[in-house]
């Protein structure tokens, strides 16, 4: 059996992931996250009389805090692996990745461990986030001046 034949055999016997089911759950959980965040914004603007931009900042901080806290308490990973993109795409995913890497490397020292590794997974989010923001801004400048 050569390599190509083997690849066909493997593809035939490997079960396929149910993509629509995954997408549905992600939509549900991600949507729920959006609803919670929006509710917090409404709460902030009405109850605490915050300006809208400031309320969004607070909501972002709250979500990051809970993403980190639940990760440190040890059960957020189970939720993330079930909800998949529903919790990875929102800020919770970013907080979760930073926190889990930090926890992992705390025994390796503050400089060579935590400092060097805490952006192990989130580093690409930052780099490509900044890059895409730059290009979007360029497009904005070209078309709207």
């Amino acid at each position: 059996m050569n390599k190509d034949e083997y690849k066909k055999l493997v593809d035939k016997l490997t079960p396929k992931e149910n993509k629509s089911k995954n997408a549905f759950y992600s939509f549900l959980v991600g949507g729920l996250m959006g609803v919670i965040a929006e509710a917090l914004v409404v709460l902030g603007t009405n109850l605490f009389k915050l300006p809208k931009t400031e309320a969004y900042l607070w909501v972002c901080l709250i979500i990051i805090f809970f993403g980190c806290l639940l990760t440190a308490l040890g059960f957020f990973d189970n939720l993330v692996s079930k909800a998949k993109a529903g919790l990875i795409i929102p800020t919770t995913g970013f907080a979760h990745s930073v926190m889990s890497a930090t926890l992992d490397y705390k025994r390796d020292g503050f400089i060579t461990g935590v400092g060097a590794n805490y952006l192990k997974l989130a580093g690409s989010v930052i780099l490509y986030g900044i890059l895409s923001a730059f290009f979007c801004a360029c497009i904005g400048v070209i078309f709207h001046g």
Partner: peptide
Amino acid sequence: FPIEYGAPR
């Protein structure tokens, strides 16, 4: 992945 990271499998 890091231990506490819940990567989809």
